Lab assay of single mutants.
Amino acid sequence: MSIQHFRVALIPFFAAFCLPVFAHPETLVKVKDAEDQLGARVGYIELDLNSGKILESFRPEERFPMMSTFKVLLCGAVLSRVDAGQEQLGRRIHYSQNDLVEYSPVTEKHLTDGMTVRELCSAAITMSDNTAANLLLTTIGGPKELTAFLHNMGDHVTRLDRWEPELNEAIPNDERDTTMPAAMATTLRKLLTGELLTLASRQQLIDWMEADKVAGPLLRSALPAGWFIADKSGAGERGSRGIIAALGPDGKPSRIVVIYTTGSQATMDERNRQIAEIGASLIKHW
């Protein structure tokens, strides 16, 4: 067993022997301040990774656009098919120029040779490549099948209805392509620590998230040296922004954090800054 596999296998073990965790309302004060600064709703939840206990939450059962955070769930569904012998990570998928959609920095470079399922998941999570996500959605049967996968996990809230990039439209009061912070946090925890996926697939999923290259201005910008984070960000229309993450000190994750916002007129930089400040408060009061 590799060191990384050992780390993920012992996530519940280490967490069980940690000192009790206590909620700190100071972080919620910052979440509410972010709402004021952005002029928009902000949803927040913080779960203990081992027990699933909610440590703090704000608007945990209000719907927010998922945006690209759905790509972690998508690759979880792909990995479940791999575990069941219905898919192979090494299978190569070929596609054409007509398949390319807006923001496809990886797939646009491989029109000639195609990409493997493993490479597509890596591109979808680490670079948020939209064509990679659409190609992977095709392998599982489309958005409705991802929703069905989530329902089978016990998540009857999260739903995907459309493809990239239309799913980022974020129309107010439109339930399409949305989740709730509580539902997303619980589902992410199941994917990373539950028995739904094999140990190898859980490790692969967290490795992809740990290698995320496009979430630097968010929670990662607030992390002290030595902290662990595996995350996936999302951005959408109407001032929408979000991030889902597993993080913790001492090089291992111990909490799940989900943050979503929508309806702001603020710039992307300002949305990023507010999420980073929430992260800084979380870490300060850990």
Rank of each mutant, 00 (worst) to 15 (best):
K71Y: 00
I243A: 04
G239K: 02
E210G: 09
I3E: 06
P20C: 05
R63L: 08
V31G: 02
L167T: 08
T198M: 10
L160Q: 07
H110I: 05
A170I: 09
T138Q: 15
E62A: 09
G154N: 07
P25C: 09
R91I: 04
D231Q: 05
V117F: 04
L111M: 13
K284T: 15
D269L: 11
L223Y: 03
P12Q: 10
F6T: 07
M184G: 01
G226C: 09
E102M: 12
T131V: 05
E270D: 14
V117Y: 03
E102V: 11
T112E: 15
S281F: 15
R162G: 08
Q86W: 10
S254Q: 15
T116F: 04
D129H: 00
G216M: 10
T262G: 05
L135Y: 03
A211W: 08
M180F: 11
P165M: 07
S233R: 01
N272Q: 05
Y103L: 04
S254R: 12
G242F: 00
T27D: 04
F228Q: 06
L199P: 15
M184I: 14
F58A: 09
R271P: 05
D174N: 06
R271T: 11
L135I: 14
A222W: 06
S254Y: 09
D129N: 00
E87I: 11
P249Y: 05
G114H: 05
V21A: 14
T193R: 15
I206Q: 12
T267L: 10
A211G: 13
V82Q: 06
R63G: 04
N130Y: 05
A245G: 09
M153K: 08
T147L: 07
T107W: 01
L73R: 00
L247S: 02
W163N: 11
D99L: 08
M115H: 03
Q88E: 13
S2L: 15
Y44N: 00
V8Y: 15
L146V: 11
G43E: 00
S233V: 02
A246K: 03
L199I: 15
M66L: 12
F6W: 08
F17D: 03
I54V: 15
L218A: 04
A123E: 04
R63E: 05
F228H: 06
S2E: 05
G52K: 06
C75R: 00
G39P: 05
R91M: 06
T126F: 03
N152E: 15
Q265H: 14
E270C: 12
I93N: 03
T112I: 15
A280H: 14
N98C: 07
N272F: 02
S57T: 11
S68I: 00
E277D: 11
S240P: 01
F17T: 11
L111F: 09
L73A: 11
Y260S: 02
L55H: 08
V106R: 07
W163S: 09
S264Y: 04
L282E: 04
T131D: 01
D231E: 04
Y103D: 04
D212E: 04
Q203S: 13
Q97W: 11
S57D: 09
D33H: 15
L192I: 15
V82S: 08
K232N: 01
R271S: 08
T187Y: 03
M268R: 07
S68C: 01
G142V: 01
F22C: 13
H151E: 12
G263L: 06
F149L: 09
L196H: 15
A40H: 04
V214R: 06
V21S: 10
L219K: 04
I45N: 03
D155A: 01
P217Y: 07
K190E: 15
L150G: 05
G43I: 00
L136M: 07
G52R: 05
N152I: 10
G141D: 06
Y44G: 02
S254G: 12
L247G: 01
G279E: 02
R118P: 04
D113N: 13
A15W: 15
T186Q: 13
G242Y: 00
W208L: 06
E277P: 02
L49P: 05
Q204A: 15
T261E: 06
I259M: 08
H24F: 10
E26K: 13
S240E: 09
R220H: 04
L47F: 07
L219Y: 03
M115C: 07
V31Y: 01
N272G: 05
L89Q: 05
T178A: 05
G242C: 06
N152P: 04
A170D: 08
H156Y: 15
V78Y: 03
A211S: 13
G154P: 04
Y260V: 06
Q86F: 10
W163H: 09
L89A: 07
V214E: 05
D212Y: 03
E46K: 10
F58L: 09
G154T: 05
M180V: 14
L160E: 02
N272T: 08
I278H: 00
E26G: 12
P105G: 04
A280K: 15
R91E: 06
N98E: 15
P172C: 11
R81V: 06
I125G: 01
V29D: 13
D129F: 00
A170V: 12
K190V: 12
T107S: 11
A40F: 04
P12D: 07
K53I: 14
N173W: 15
G263W: 04
V214P: 05
N98S: 13
S68L: 00
H110Y: 13
L136W: 00
G154L: 05
D250G: 13
T178E: 02
I256G: 02
S68T: 00
R189V: 09
A235W: 01
G234Y: 02
Q204L: 15
F13Q: 05
P105C: 04
S68K: 00
M209A: 04
E277R: 12
K232G: 00
I125S: 03
V157I: 12
A40S: 10
T261W: 04
I243H: 02
M209L: 08
A276E: 08
A200N: 15
L282K: 02
N50S: 13
A280Y: 10
V257A: 06
Q37A: 14
A182W: 13
F13I: 10
R271H: 07
Q265V: 12
H94V: 13
P217W: 05
A123K: 02
N130Q: 04
A245K: 00
K190Y: 12
E61A: 13
G39R: 14
R118F: 11
S96M: 10
A280V: 13
P25W: 10
K252L: 10
G141E: 06
G216Y: 08
D212A: 04
V106I: 14
L188W: 04
R202W: 03
H151D: 09
Q86P: 05
T187C: 09
W208R: 01
K252C: 12
I244K: 00
R162K: 07
Q274H: 12
T186G: 14
A15P: 07
A230R: 01
A84D: 12
A9E: 05
H285R: 11
M180Y: 14
F14E: 01
M268W: 09
T112N: 13
P172H: 10
F22H: 15
V101R: 08
K30C: 15
R59T: 02
L137V: 08
M66T: 06
P25H: 13
F22Q: 10
E119A: 10
R255D: 00
T261H: 06
P253D: 07
G263P: 04
D33A: 15
A215E: 04
R81I: 06
I140T: 06
L282Y: 03
R7D: 07
D231Y: 04
T178P: 00
G236F: 01
P143I: 05
S51K: 09
G216S: 09
L188T: 09
A182E: 10
G142L: 01
P224C: 05
G154C: 06
R118D: 12
L100F: 09
G85D: 10
I54Y: 09
P143E: 05
P217K: 15
A225M: 15
I275D: 00
A16K: 06
T107F: 02
L100S: 04
L135W: 02
G279M: 04
R118H: 15
L146G: 03
P172S: 12
V157E: 12
P12F: 12
M268G: 07
L150Q: 05
S68R: 00
G154Q: 09
D250V: 10
A183I: 09
R91K: 10
D177F: 01
D207A: 15
L150P: 01
G234F: 01
R189T: 09
E237I: 10
K284M: 10
F6K: 11
E61H: 14
P143G: 06
